[in-house]
């Protein structure tokens, strides 16, 4: 018997910079895989998805309007905050049966990955923008521009690293997102919301929901105010459903099924570009 009774955390969702419970007031049990109780997580409904998309859309204008330098600093700040709460995340990852060494590596890689994408915010237009030598008296340039609200479906494995690998490239350039956390391993994602809250990320830029996939995926993928989808779930049927539903409003869909979330290939500006539109501007050159 411990000397002191531990204070346990109630895991909620992270929407619009707040930590509401699911509007449905339902929860479900998260276990360590051996049916030992870890916590109850919110069992979000389609209305939670609706609210999260609304928050995400509201946050888009402001986040998009930030300078690239500022967004880079905010992403870096997330990494700083995470570094300070390393132990919390290592312990949380261990609850699901991961060994200390692996958990620590996951947290470290996640922090470094944030820093990687923080550095891209003010370079992506330089590397992937162009000045186009048109054959007329016009100045013409193209630059990448955030696409808007992105729906993200996280995988079950490496619930901190994968979530950060998906969120960072999306928000780096001014997009906002709604993330459906892993159904079985949602807790690190929810705790990551607390880190975001503490690190200058404006409310609504990242929204994190938990719950049963079959109750949220349909709504998320068909929602017409979402501009793009990033799917990292291994479930092929979900991928197909997302493709189909995306066609309702011509969403961009990126199926991103990773074998190894620790691999350096996830540090990749081309993933950032998937959530950017190329905008081309013409102007006459005359006196």
């Amino acid at each position: 018997m411990a000397d002191r009774i531990e204070v346990l955390k109630t895991y909620k969702t992270y929407v619009g910079g707040k930590f509401p419970r699911s509007e449905s007031d339902r929860t479900y049990r998260i276990t360590d895989g051996k049916d030992n109780h870890i916590a109850n997580a919110c069992r979000c409904s389609r209305k939670d998805v609706r609210d999260a998309v609304l928050a995400s859309r509201s946050a888009f204008g402001g986040w998009y309007a930030r300078t690239a330098y500022n967004r880079g600093q905010v992403l870096y700040r997330i990494a700083e905050m995470l570094e300070g709460r390393k132990d919390q995340f290592v312990n949380e990852l261990k609850l699901s049966g991961v060994k200390q060494k692996v958990a620590l590596n996951e947290v470290h890689t996640a922090i470094d990955r944030l820093i990687y994408f923080a550095g891209w915010t003010d370079k992506i237009s330089q590397v992937f923008g162009t000045v186009n030598p048109v054959a007329s008296a016009h100045f013409n340039f193209s630059s990448p521009d955030a696409t808007g609200v992105v729906g993200i479906i996280a995988p079950d494995e490496h619930p901190l690293l994968s979530v950060i690998s998906l969120i960072a490239p999306v928000i780096a350039t001014g997009n906002t997102c709604v993330l459906l956390a892993s159904e079985t391993n949602p807790l690190p994602a929810v705790s990551f919301g607390e880190v975001l809250h503490a690190s200058d990320v404006p409310g609504g830029v990242v929204n994190i929901l938990t719950g049963y996939r079959n109750e949220t995926v349909e709504t998320l993928t068909s929602h017409k105010d979402i501009n793009a989808l990033l799917l990292a779930s291994r479930d092929i049927e979900t991928g197909k459903l997302a493709d189909e539903n995306a066609s309702l409003s011509v969403k961009r869909v990126v199926q991103y099924r990773a074998e190894d979330w620790f691999s350096g290939e996830h540090e990749n500006p081309y993933l950032v570009l998937e959530f950017m539109e190329t905008k081309t501007t013409w102007h006459p050159v005359g006196a």
């Binding site: 048109v134 016009h138 013409n140 905008k279 081309t280 013409w282």
Partner: peptide
Amino acid sequence: VIWSNTYNKFDPTSP
């Protein structure tokens, strides 16, 4: 595409 002070211009180099 944003055509400023022009419209409906096309060029192979222009996305």
